[in-house]
Design a protein around this nucleic acid. Structure first.
Lengths: 123, 123
DNA sequence: TGACAACTACGAAGATCTTCGTATATTGTT
DNA sequence: AACAATATACGAAGATCTTCGTAGTTGTCA
């Protein structure tokens, strides 16, 4: 089973689609706010070929929507980086994340709650 | 400033070098335990060109060693995935990591300590 | 109807990554 | 000295990614 691994350009499109919901190439391109229109179009066509988005060709301006959930794909991305970069150690990954990014107090507490709930499951 | 972003093949070499310390192509290739010798050689030469490893050509079999720290490069990798995949939200990244990987109780507690210490800095 | 704007389709160029064949040099062995 | 084993060096083939030029189609509006 080969893991889905969107490219940088593809992630950008997908983020826009998750934010906007079903949208035309034009809308996505405006949301991104940079680059050549044809590049956006091409990337979205490729995403459709790969099955990561679905396309409604009803109207002249086709309407695309993400065919995969944001959380699911993010999970795959984490697995990927975990394997390739951290030798599988999620603890290490989180340590690097904590070092690099200052989390808001709220986020830290939410994280602590998440840890509590995970610990509960294995007591 | 363009962030350093080793490829999958390069990460594999680097992991081996961090584990072994300074090592020959042969040693790295054996450590990896797969693929063509020439591929390993080529990748290590490319890493040298990029400055991610340094090469001692004294002996016939050149000795390579990582020119960058593991933690530093992992930190960059996290920043990268944070930007591209998580829109900068470290909390979200950690949530996905927790969902996907079952951490050992020990790791969870270590993580909690890390959070405590980070929270301490901003009380 | 004629001209222009907006859209899709297609493909090729340039970059980068991975793989590996081939050439050449050095070392060790018999 | 001859040969086998082991190195490095070099480059090209095949894949994939990004970018963008060009062509053709459809819609709009004066």
């Amino acid at each position: 089973m080969t893991r889905i691994r969107p490219t940088t350009g593809e992630w950008e499109i997908l983020q826009a689609l998750w934010k906007l919901g079903p949208a035309t190439v034009r809308a996505v391109h405006d949301e991104i706010g940079a680059g050549h229109y044809n590049t956006t179009l091409k990337l979205m066509q490729i995403l459709a070929e790969k099955g990561l988005v679905v396309r409604d060709e009803e109207a002249r301006a086709h309407v695309y929507k993400a065919a995969v959930g944001r959380e699911a794909l993010q999970g795959d991305a984490v697995e990927d980086v975990l394997e390739r970069v951290f030798g599988g150690s999620a603890a290490e990954l989180m340590q690097r994340a904590l070092e690099r990014r200052k989390l808001k107090k709220r986020e830290l507490e939410e994280l602590r709650r998440m840890i509590d709930s995970f610990e509960g499951k294995k007591s």
